[in-house]
């Protein structure tokens, strides 16, 4: 068990290091922070001073080295816009983002799982067709398109809800729906195919042959098996709670982490971008650990590891 987790954690650290390196290279090579933050009109002297202050005059590999060394001391740097610690800037935005992504996550589960289960149980019925058509639509329409359509319908034409920004609960409704629909669709499709796979297994027929009523066969025999592959995708959604709403936050001008990311990338505000990436990576790693743990709980074939590699 210890070895199992030690390997996971080591792999996670390597992943994060790669992501951060990638962001460093892309942001450093794609533009000049001094120019994007000070503006084109700034004097050459001011530019030089800015570069010296933020270490931008040093060779690239030195900057990279300093950055990495700082991370290991728990120092994620400061925003080049205003000098505030980057991590504080990011953490401050997290509640706003979770206000959208958590309810959207619950919406995905509450709609996606029952819809997928029903579609599988009533395969090829009207319910199944309806769920699948909706799911394909919800899955293929990009969230910014859906967001704009919802704004047009509910905020502009009938004017029931605000077009964006913050304020009361009514400001949350459209962004949450926009976020939730796609995920619910993905989950419905996934759960449906997982259920169909399980319902075709011999042990389901064998359970019916024992005289177990169908509802109990579904609940007691099919669902626990279908849950195993489903955990993967739900875990992925958990990992996305922090960074999964970049597009929607932009469409609805919501002051969350996603919005901060867009602004900071545009400004080449490296420390802030890196902090967000680190946080996102950490969330992903964390959710992966939970998924692995849940596999062990849900699938006894993995728990004692004697038939490993079954997945």
């Amino acid at each position: 068990m210890f070895r199992f987790f030690a390997i996971r954690v080591l792999r996670a650290v390597l992943t994060v290091a790669l992501v951060v390196t990638f962001a460093f290279i892309v942001l450093r090579l794609s533009g000049d922070p001094a120019r994007s933050i000070m503006g084109d009109d700034a004097s050459p002297e001011a530019m030089t001073a800015f570069r010296r202050e933020w270490g931008l005059d040093q060779p690239l590999w030195m900057q990279y080295f300093h950055y990495f060394a700082a991370i290991f001391e728990g120092e994620l740097g400061r925003s080049m816009r205003g000098g505030v610690p980057a991590l504080d800037l990011v953490l401050e935005r997290i509640p706003a983002t979770l206000m959208l992504t958590l309810p959207a996550f619950l919406m995905k589960l509450a709609i996606g799982i029952p819809a997928g289960v029903y579609a599988a149980l009533y395969r090829d019925s009207v319910i199944d067709r309806a769920v699948m058509v909706t799911a394909v639509a919800g899955y293929t329409v990009p969230s910014f398109v859906l967001g704009l359509v919802l704004v047009q319908l509910l905020a502009i034409w009938v004017a029931w809800l605000p077009t964006g920004g913050t304020g009361g609960l009514q400001h949350l409704i459209l962004p949450i729906i926009t976020l939730g629909v796609g995920g619910a669709a993905v989950l419905a499709r996934f759960v449906r195919s997982a259920m169909l796979e399980v319902l075709g297994q011999p042990y389901i027929r064998a359970a019916s042959a024992k005289g177990i009523p169908w509802a109990s066969v579904v609940r007691g025999h099919a669902l626990p098996n279908a849950a195993i592959p489903t955990v993967t995708i739900v875990g992925f959604m958990v990992g996305n709670l922090i960074a999964g709403s970049v597009v929607v936050e932009s469409v609805f001008s919501w002051p969350g982490v996603g919005n901060l990311l867009v602004v900071s990338v545009a400004a080449r505000d490296l420390a802030v971008v890196q902090s967000i990436l680190l946080l996102v990576a950490a969330a992903m790693v964390f959710s992966n650990l939970i998924v692995d743990f849940l596999y062990g709980v849900l699938d006894p074939r993995l728990a004692n590891g004697n038939t490993g590699g079954d997945h």
Partner: peptide
């Protein structure tokens, strides 16, 4: 269905070809 469920496993039991797949792996 309720009458069939009382017959199946109660009056008429059935076993299958591959016992390892006829048993639920997670229970």
């Amino acid at each position: 269905a309720s009458r069939l469920d009382r017959i199946r496993g109660g009056r008429v039991a059935m076993i299958f070809q591959d016992p390892s797949s006829a048993l639920n792996p997670v229970l």
